[in-house]
Computed example of a mutant assay.
Amino acid sequence: MFEVGSTLDLELLRTFQVVAQSGSLAATAEVRHRTLSAISMQMKRLETELDVRLLERGPRGVTLTASGELLLREAQALLRAHDTLVSRFSRERLSGRVRLGIPEDYARELLDDTLPQFMARHPGILLDVTTDTSGRLARGLRARRLDLAVVLDHAAGLEGGETLWHPTPVWAGPAQGALHQEAIVPLAVHPAECPYRQLAADALDAAQRPWRAIFTSTSIHAVEKAIETGMAIGVLDRERVTGAMRALDENDGLPALRRCVARLHFARTIAAASQPAVEALAELLRQRLSGRGPWQWDALSARSPG
């Protein structure tokens, strides 16, 4: 039982944070350089001290209980405050390598401000950034080619993650014309493993509307140009609909699109030397993206004085 005046071991909270991020006691043991039994004992000790169940153990790993989710938020804030205080007085700079994956559709917004600011704050960190479809980013996480990624929806079976914001995908067509009324709907899309491509395919298939991908590109700008010039229609974030396009919906005879979620995912194992750097970048992404996404941050920045 946790009593007034008692103190929690920060190392227990650090281990708990890694367990929450990885969803695996075995992966945590590798990251924390301890045995599996030691990690298990630490988690049992933490649960005993707090007198609450924090983890649900299953065949595919561990998940957080409601109390665990609450503790994770509080523990992250406490550890951030602690580490900031220590670094401020120790003159110790973060170092290590962080391999970040971001969807192509959001690269420009993140590169405009967030990532350059991170590099300026932490010149000792080597940042490697990859842009790709969410499905391929998910594979990169599982193959340990990435440490951290922003991924749309449950790409390629990737589960868990921290919800950052809810994108607003819409049908987009050229400002003039009625391509959406054609017998076989012409689409401009990213390659397979793109959530927006899947949204379009699922909606049209469910409505029994034939479709064909007549333009496929890994570049969001190329997809946008194909829509603007009247080659095809596509699914874009509402904020990407330009003056040369128009948003389409059920009133135009197109099926509704299901909701989409952007989540922050960590690799199941992260090199111990890079863990503080990875968490530092994750925290900046949370600050900038949680609840609003990159578009709303840009709007807020434009309105703020100075």
Score class of each variant (00 low, 15 high):
Arg97Cys: 00
Ala107Thr: 13
Pro103Ser: 05
Ala107Tyr: 13
Met119Pro: 05
Pro116Cys: 07
Asp113Met: 04
Phe89Ser: 10
Pro116Arg: 06
Thr114Ile: 14
Glu109Asp: 14
Asp83Glu: 13
Arg91Ser: 08
Arg97Thr: 00
Ala81Gln: 11
Arg99Tyr: 05
Leu126Asn: 14
Arg88Trp: 05
Arg97Glu: 00
Arg91Thr: 05
Leu126Arg: 13
His122Phe: 13
Arg121Ser: 13
Ile102Asp: 01
Val86Gly: 02
Gly124Pro: 07
Thr84Arg: 14
Ser87Leu: 11
Leu100Lys: 06
Ser87Gln: 13
Val86Phe: 06
Thr84Lys: 09
Phe118Ile: 06
Gly124Met: 06
Tyr106Ala: 10
Pro103Gln: 07
His82Met: 05
Arg108Leu: 11
Arg108Val: 05
Leu100Ala: 11
Ala120Val: 12
Leu126Thr: 15
Leu110Tyr: 10
Leu115Gly: 06
Pro116Gly: 09
Arg99Glu: 00
Arg80Val: 08
Leu94Val: 08
Tyr106Glu: 12
Leu100Gly: 12
Pro123Glu: 08
Gln117Asp: 15
Val86His: 07
Ile125Thr: 01
Asp105Tyr: 07
Phe89Thr: 10
Ile125Ala: 01
Glu92Arg: 12
Gly124Trp: 03
Thr114Met: 04
Arg108Gly: 12
Val98Trp: 02
Ala81His: 09
Leu94Arg: 03
Asp113Leu: 12
Arg99Lys: 13
Ile102Leu: 13
Asp83Ala: 14
Arg97Ser: 02
Ser90Arg: 08
Gly96Glu: 02
Leu94Cys: 05
Leu94Thr: 13
His82Lys: 03
Tyr106Phe: 15
Gly96Phe: 01
Ser95Phe: 01
Ala120Cys: 11
Ala81Ile: 01
Pro103Arg: 08
Val86Leu: 04
Asp83Gln: 11
Met119Lys: 15
Ser87Met: 09
Phe89His: 10
Leu126Glu: 14
Glu104Val: 13
Glu109Pro: 08
Arg91Glu: 12
Pro123Thr: 03
Arg97Met: 00
Arg121Phe: 07
Asp112Arg: 01
Arg97Gly: 02
Asp105Leu: 14
Asp112Tyr: 05
Ser90His: 04
Ala107Cys: 07
Ile102Phe: 01
Ser87Tyr: 07
Phe118Asp: 03
Ala81Gly: 12
Glu92Pro: 03
Arg99Trp: 03
Glu104Asp: 08
Phe118Arg: 00
Asp105Ile: 15
Ser87Ile: 01
Leu85Gln: 09
Arg121Tyr: 08
Leu115Val: 05
Leu126Lys: 11
Tyr106Gln: 14
Asp83Met: 09
Leu85Thr: 06
Arg99Gly: 06
Leu100Cys: 14
Leu115Asp: 04
Thr114Pro: 02
Arg80Thr: 11
Leu126Trp: 00
Arg121Ala: 15
Leu126His: 14
Arg91Ile: 00
Arg97Phe: 00
Leu126Gln: 14
Leu126Asp: 15
Leu115Tyr: 09
His82Glu: 06
Glu109Phe: 11
Leu110Trp: 08
Ser87His: 07
Ala120Lys: 10
Gly124Lys: 11
Ala107Arg: 15
Ser95Ala: 11
Pro123Cys: 05
Arg80Pro: 12
Pro103Lys: 09
Leu85His: 06
Ile125Gly: 01
Tyr106Ser: 13
Pro123Ser: 04
Thr114Phe: 02
Asp105Val: 15
Gly96Lys: 03
Gly101Glu: 04
Phe89Ala: 02
His82Asn: 11
Ser95Asp: 08
Ala107Met: 12
